[in-house]
């Protein structure tokens, strides 16, 4: 058991309704499992901002665990979290 701090950015912050959240994790919990917890907690609108609702596929974006960059599309989501990690969810967007 442990806890991680999740920071939200850009439109994910709006969907979560908060800049950050303190989330309890199981031992050995992966980033993918954490995202599942977040979508359950913050609901369908939050999920629609990170996954395509018609395909269920993750949008390509970066999740930072500390300074490590985890990609939703390069098979990194099995990365295991540790107590005290700070997890940042960045914006899935092209353009700019």
């Amino acid at each position: 058991m442990g806890r991680v701090k999740v920071k939200f950015f850009a439109h994910l912050r709006q969907a979560a309704g908060t800049n950050e959240a303190d989330i309890e994790i199981r031992e050995g919990e992966t980033v993918e499992e954490l995202i599942k917890t977040l979508t359950e907690r913050f609901g369908a609108e939050f999920e629609s901002r990170i996954k395509d609702p018609t395909t269920g596929a993750f949008a390509p974006f970066l999740i930072m665990v500390g300074r490590e960059e985890i990609s939703t599309v390069r098979g990194d989501l099995k990365h295991r979290l540790s107590d005290g990690d700070v997890v940042s969810l960045l914006e899935p967007v092209g353009g700019g």
Binding site: F9, A10, H11, P53, E91, V93, G94
Partner: peptide, 25 residues
């Protein structure tokens, strides 16, 4: 419309949404 980037992120914040992401990186 279904794509989280073009259907949600850009309509919500536009390109300025990238500002905090770039800073975080």
């Amino acid at each position: 419309k279904a794509n989280p980037g073009t259907g949600k992120a850009l309509p919500t914040l536009g390109t300025p949404g990238v500002t905090t992401t770039n800073n975080q990186l």
